[in-house]
């Protein structure tokens, strides 16, 4: 029985060796993630001529681990998770980012009971309230908001606010600020607009009080060893396939208008911020 199992294992491993796999951090609308990304996998299969499979993950760290352990060779990362992944995997490269990711931003949102109004500069009014980030590993829900808070107040968020939490993800940040459980939250601006369009946000209860300066966010990162593993120009072909993606129903999964080229150096500022906050 043991040997049989072992044989199966070896056999399965060998047929999987030529499957190109990718993942995407769970950040936007998570529902039906698999069926939506299976379509992207189909598109890449057609473009690249190899079998492409999508592997669903539940957290930012799981996406990074899968990439690091070569369980996936390509990943749609956030700014911070991408920097981390490339830090851990030598030779890996950012090859494309969303058009919108060149000037990404976060919103600080507040429950109406705080009486806060939109402010041009982050100011001390927000300091006495409770505050929630999104996921601990998120760029737009954690890293950049924390960076701007530290920049403004000169101390860490849990010394600025009455209480600090991590809701887990952007949708939950919105739901929990809207229900008043948390008074202020930091959220990915794209998710905010998605939910606003979906009618999930009641503007009489919750509103945007501050918009962060723009920064770079999501990007496609590929492992450096794919060229040896698949074909000599494989990473270039992947990059081309991503940049050529024009079908709105595929782009809606991300959701981005289109993809544009990106390099590792573009993300240097994110890396500096991550190091300063000791997340790298």
């Amino acid at each position: 029985m043991k040997y049989l199992l072992l044989c199966c294992l070896l056999f399965v491993n060998s047929i999987n060796a030529q499957t190109f796999t990718f993942t995407a951090i769970p950040d936007e609308d998570e529902s039906r993630l698999r069926s939506r990304f299976d379509k992207v996998a189909l598109y890449l299969t057609e473009q690249l001529g190899v079998d492409v499979k999508y592997v669903p993950v539940k957290s930012y760290s799981a996406a990074i681990s899968a990439f690091r352990n070569n369980q996936v060779q390509l990943a749609w990362f956030g700014g911070l998770s991408g920097v981390k992944a490339r830090h851990l995997v030598e030779g890996s490269r950012a090859i494309a980012q969303g058009y919108e990711d060149q000037f990404f931003k976060s919103y600080f949102i507040a429950h109406h009971s705080t009486g806060l109004t939109e402010q041009a500069q982050l100011n001390k009014d927000i300091a006495k309230f409770t505050f929630t980030f999104g996921s601990k590993g998120s760029t737009s829900g954690r890293l950049m908001p924390e960076h701007f808070i530290r920049q403004t107040f000169g101390k860490s968020p849990n010394k600025v606010f009455k209480r600090v939490g991590f809701s887990g993800d952007h949708s939950r940040t919105i739901a929990q600020v809207q229900s008043g459980a948390w008074q202020i939250g930091a959220v990915n601006y794209k998710v905010w607009h998605n939910e606003l369009n979906a009618g999930k946000i009641d503007l009489s209860k919750i509103k945007v009080i501050w918009t962060t300066p723009t920064y770079l966010d999501y990007q496609w990162t590929i492992r450096g060893d794919v060229d040896q593993q698949f074909s000599p120009d494989f990473s270039q072909r992947v990059q081309k396939a991503l940049l050529d993606m024009s079908d709105p129903s595929l782009l809606a999964s991300f959701p981005r208008q289109k993809f544009v080229p990106a390099t590792n150096d573009d993300y240097e500022p994110i890396k500096v911020v991550a190091k300063a906050i000791k997340l790298l």
Binding site: P26, P56, K58, G168, S171, R172, K200
Partner: peptide, 24 residues
Amino acid sequence: LGFIGLPTLGYYLETAFSQGQYNQ
């Protein structure tokens, strides 16, 4: 165990809850 990504019921439960899809 689905909460951290293994493909069990918790995987979908966590997603549905965090996305506010309460019927699911």
